[in-house]
């Protein structure tokens, strides 16, 4: 599994570049590196459904980020750190590393040997029970269709939220206020 470690190292490097680089266009492109590396890792870990969805969603997310933010004049302004932000971050990272150490010392199975007590039911019974050859498809749309219903609800809420935040009608009073401030 040496490819996995190489790709994970590339993703970590991409994430650090995305966060520390000054130019926002470079940052968005570096996040694209992280997402596409993630897609290849999903393929290596035998999850082709998730890899296909990830690569497509990554492209859409990068297009949205670039088009929605980067035609503004913000590219070369310095973006420093917040006061107390560094202290908070170090505190949180310490706690996260502690939690990770506690988790890995006991509860989690080693990499490559999953706990299959519940999930063994799905590959055993999917074809006879639902007729779908793709087990993941039978899980999301038959055994756990409530998950998908909840996902549809969240997506609908997000679309309504975007439409509400971005609406341009009925804002005449606010434009007048802005004009006064200027």
């Amino acid at each position: 599994m040496i490819e996995l470690y190489v790709l994970l190292g590339l993703m970590i490097a991409g994430a650090i570049i995305a966060i520390e680089v000054k130019n926002l266009l470079s940052a968005v492109v570096a996040v694209g590196i992280v997402g596409l590396g993630l897609s290849i890792i999903f393929l290596l870990l035998k999850a082709p459904d998730v890899a296909l969805t990830q690569i497509v969603v990554e492209i859409a997310a990068v297009i949205l980020l670039i088009r929605a933010t980067l035609h503004r004049d913000i590219a070369l302004k310095p973006c420093g750190s917040r006061p107390f932000g560094g202290f908070l971050a170090i505190l949180f990272l310490g706690l996260a590393v502690l939690a990770g150490a506690l988790t890995f010392s006991g509860g989690l199975n080693p990499f490559g040997s999953p706990l299959m007590t519940v999930s063994e039911f799905y590959p055993m019974n999917a074809v006879a029970g639902t007729g779908a050859v793709n087990v993941v498809s039978s899980v999301i749309l038959d055994y756990r269709a409530y998950d998908t219903l909840g996902e549809a609800t969240v997506l609908f809420t997000a679309v309504v939220g975007v439409l509400t935040v971005m609406r341009s009608k009925g804002k005449k009073k606010e434009e007048d206020l802005q004009g006064n401030n200027e």
Binding site: D49, L52, T53, V133, N134, S138
Partner: peptide, 11 residues
Amino acid sequence: HGHITPGGGFA
């Protein structure tokens, strides 16, 4: 072909 090959409604 979501139920026989990788993919499905989301992708």
